[in-house]
Amino acid sequence: MLVIDPAALTARENYQLLTASVIPRPIALVTTLSQEGVLNAAPFSYFSIVASDPPLLSVSVQRKQGVRKDTARNAVERKAFVVHIVDETNVHAANEAAASLPPNESEMPRAGFTPVASAAIEVPGIQEAKIRMECVLEQAIGLGGAGEQEPACDLLIGRVVRFHFAEEVYLNGIVAADRLQPVSRLGGSDYAVLGKRFALERP
C-alpha cells in the first residue's frame, strides 16, 4: 500500500484524493433564500443522512478563502433550506446552478428551474425535482481551520419537516430507485448513474 500524509499535500491534492476515493456520492441540490429575497440554488456532493428519528440530513458547504458561501449564509440567517435529489432529468441544470454568481443574482433562471412554494418553511423548492425535503436548520457547525483561521467549511444539519415525492417514484412507502434515476458524483468532472445492483440480507 502507498502511504500518504495529507499534511504534506496541498488542499487541492487532498480534495482530488478524497473526491475520487469516497464514491459514489449522492448530490443534494439545495435552495436557500437570502434576507433580500433572492432564491439561491446550488449542488453539493458532501451530503448524507445523519439520523432518521428525527430525520436529519447533513450538507457540508466549503468556504471560499474563509468566507461563507451564499447557501450557508442564507441557511444560517433564515434557519431553513430545501434539499432536492439530483437525477438524470435535472443533472445538467443542477450543474448550471453551480456557477459562481453574485449574491443578488439567482441561479434559478440560469438553470431553467421553476420555484415552487414549500408547505412548512418560507424557502421555495424546485418544481423539476422528483424528491425534495424541506428542512429547518438544527445546527451550523464551522469545521476545519487552525488557531485563529476561519473554518474551512460549514456543516449544515437540517431536520426534515416535509417530504415531497413525485407520484411515479413513491410506491407503497418505498422510493423506486429505477424510477428516480439518481445521479452520483465521482472524482474530477465525472458522474455516474445506477448500474448493477444486488441485495444482501443483514446477519
Rank of each mutant, 00 (worst) to 15 (best):
Q149M: 15
R110W: 02
P26E: 07
S34Y: 10
L180P: 09
R25A: 00
Q65T: 15
I85S: 01
N104Y: 07
K196M: 10
V91H: 10
V116Y: 14
G37I: 15
R73S: 13
A199S: 14
R179P: 09
L39W: 00
A41V: 04
N95G: 04
Y170A: 04
T114C: 12
P26C: 04
R110M: 01
A177D: 06
A99T: 07
R25W: 03
N40L: 14
A11F: 14
L143N: 07
R63A: 06
C153I: 09
L194P: 05
R68M: 10
P115L: 02
A129L: 12
L155S: 03
A51C: 14
V91C: 07
E105I: 15
V183G: 00
H92T: 13
A75N: 02
N14W: 14
V183F: 07
Y191F: 13
K130A: 13
M108K: 06
D5H: 12
I23M: 11
R12G: 02
M1A: 12
Y15Q: 07
G188Q: 07
F198R: 11
T32N: 08
M108V: 13
T19D: 10
Q16P: 06
D87V: 10
Q16L: 01
G144S: 00
E77A: 02
A93Q: 13
I131V: 14
L137G: 03
L17P: 05
G188D: 07
V59D: 00
Q149A: 15
P203E: 01
D87K: 13
L101M: 10
G187L: 00
Y15S: 05
Q139N: 10
E150D: 15
G195D: 02
N172A: 11
R159G: 03
V3R: 12
D87Q: 12
V30S: 05
A152H: 03
K69E: 10
V50F: 13
R25I: 05
H164G: 02
V175T: 09
T19A: 07
A51S: 13
P55A: 05
G145N: 12
Q65E: 15
L186F: 14
A166K: 09
S100V: 14
E77K: 03
Y46M: 15
V30M: 06
L17C: 02
V38P: 04
M108R: 01
E107G: 00
E96C: 12
S60L: 12
A51H: 03
R25G: 04
C135P: 07
K79S: 02
K130F: 12
S45C: 14
